[in-house]
């Protein structure tokens, strides 16, 4: 549909006038038009969008997921510090996912838990449980660009990546570590994001992310995220065992190690409410 529109706008002829042309001429015109169209932003937009949509489509239907995470924070001097967390995710029809993150280590934050209702449009809803005070506090989801637990991951890097949170532009094909990838530029829709853009490498065969570069508000390269050791679950869903984030401006890095992935465990919306936030551990 859009290809047709582009074709018409490129050669300037309405479809009716094309009837007198031979098949060969039409084919040639089509090839030329497509080449021209591919170089225009409008068309690139479309393709980037399609890649993001296909990636999202292939990762739909898992219903719920739980996993354990270990974060190893490393500073420029190579000193390490470790955090242990657990995450629970619930797919929501026609809206963003629900996410709960539970802190196990360091021990002083043990029992602290985050609950996020991601929304496709508008700000996410977020609550924090403080176990010492037995208090559930609604917090603003605006502060998403700061470090998560002192790591090189920002809150927004760990949030559910709903397609509506970005606009997409296809850039090029590229071979990355021996596999063909699509390189897509993603621009955050929310102005409170800490980034002007991401450059993301999608695996062409599986539509999973292989790498993301993050550009800061001055449009300078800030961080690179590399996804490692993908495993397939339920014969469909790909999840990395490791995510490596390097900050180019500070020399610090964080390794996020995932384990104990489980899908379709039977969690419901009830496991993602404020009452469950209070008693999760």
């Amino acid at each position: 549909m859009s290809l047709n529109t582009t074709l018409l706008s490129v050669d300037g002829h309405p479809v009716e006038n094309g009837r007198c042309l031979s098949r060969g001429v039409i084919s040639v015109a089509l090839v030329i038009a497509m080449t021209l169209a591919a170089s225009t932003w409008a068309f690139a937009d479309q393709r980037g969008d399609e890649i993001a949509r296909e990636a999202d489509r292939r990762d739909t239907g898992w219903n719920d997921m739980i996993a354990e995470l270990e974060m190893v924070l490393r500073n420029r001097q190579g000193e390490e510090s470790t955090r242990a967390l657990r995450s629970r995710l619930l797919e929501v029809d026609a809206d963003g996912d629900k996410l709960m993150i539970i802190f196990d280590r360091p021990r002083d934050v043990r029992g602290t838990a985050f609950l996020t209702y991601t929304h496709r449009s508008g700000p996410d809803d977020q609550w924090l449980f403080l176990p010492a005070l037995k208090r559930v506090k609604r917090i603003s989801s605006n502060n998403k660009s700061g470090p998560f637990m002192g790591s090189e991951f920002a809150y927004e890097d760990l949030a559910s990546q709903e397609i509506e949170k970005y606009t997409y532009e296809y850039r090029r094909d590229e071979i990355l570590d021996g596999r063909p990838t699509f390189v897509v530029e993603r621009v955050p829709v929310d102005s409170s994001s800490g980034y002007t853009k991401h450059v993301a490498w999608y695996d062409q065969e599986e539509y999973r992310l292989a790498k993301i570069e993050f550009y800061d508000r001055k449009d300078e390269l800030l961080k690179t995220l590399i996804y490692r050791s993908y495993q397939q679950y339920l014969e469909q869903y790909w999840r990395p065992d490791e995510m490596y984030m390097e900050n180019h401006q500070t020399g610090k890095s964080t390794v996020l190690r995932w384990s104990e992935y489980e899908f379709q465990t039977g969690l419901t919306a009830r496991d993602f409410d404020q009452s469950s936030l209070r008693r999760v551990r």
Binding site: N142, N143, S145, G146, P147, A154, S192, D216
Partner: peptide
């Protein structure tokens, strides 16, 4: 909350 003040990571 002024989040991530001047990209310093401070809130």
């Amino acid at each position: 909350t002024l989040g991530n003040l001047r990209s310093s990571g401070l809130d």
